[in-house]
Simulated scan of single mutants.
Amino acid sequence: MAHIGYARVSTASQSLEAQEFQLKAAGCTVIYSDVVTGSSPSRPQWDACRKGLREGDSLVITRLDRAGRSLSHLI
């Protein structure tokens, strides 16, 4: 069982550092990160993160909006 983290910022001028710090503090052993708007249909590291999850793993994000911008994206 592993804690897998996902971090995302919308623009290159924003930093992933704070999210990555929080994910490491939560015990994440692997962290995937994207620099892309949440509404983008293409988030390569989000796709890799979901494919990398195994039964028993926990997905950890710092805020729900890091996974998607709307309820339809989350579903």
Rank of each mutant, 00 (worst) to 15 (best):
H3K: 15
H3I: 09
Y6P: 01
A7V: 00
A7F: 08
A7S: 04
A7H: 07
R8V: 04
V9R: 01
V9S: 00
V9C: 03
S10Q: 07
T11Y: 02
T11H: 10
A12C: 05
A12V: 15
S13H: 10
S13N: 13
S13Y: 07
Q14I: 00
S15Q: 11
E17K: 12
E17H: 13
A18Y: 06
A18K: 12
Q19V: 01
Q22M: 15
L23R: 03
L23S: 04
A26V: 06
C28K: 04
C28V: 00
C28L: 04
T29M: 03
V30P: 04
I31V: 14
Y32N: 08
Y32P: 02
Y32I: 02
D34I: 02
V35D: 00
V35A: 02
V35L: 00
V36M: 11
V36A: 14
T37F: 08
G38R: 06
S40D: 10
S40N: 14
P41G: 14
P41R: 06
S42Q: 12
R43C: 01
R43K: 05
R43W: 00
P44E: 01
P44N: 05
P44Y: 04
Q45A: 15
Q45F: 04
D47Q: 14
K51W: 11
K51D: 13
L53Q: 05
L53D: 08
L53M: 08
R54C: 12
E55P: 11
G56T: 09
L59E: 06
L59P: 05
L59Q: 07
L59V: 04
V60L: 13
I61D: 07
T62L: 09
R63T: 12
R63Y: 12
L64Y: 11
L64D: 13
D65K: 08
D65T: 12
R66W: 10
A67K: 09
A67L: 15
G68K: 03
G68D: 10
G68R: 05
R69L: 14
R69T: 15
S70T: 15
S72D: 15
I75Y: 10
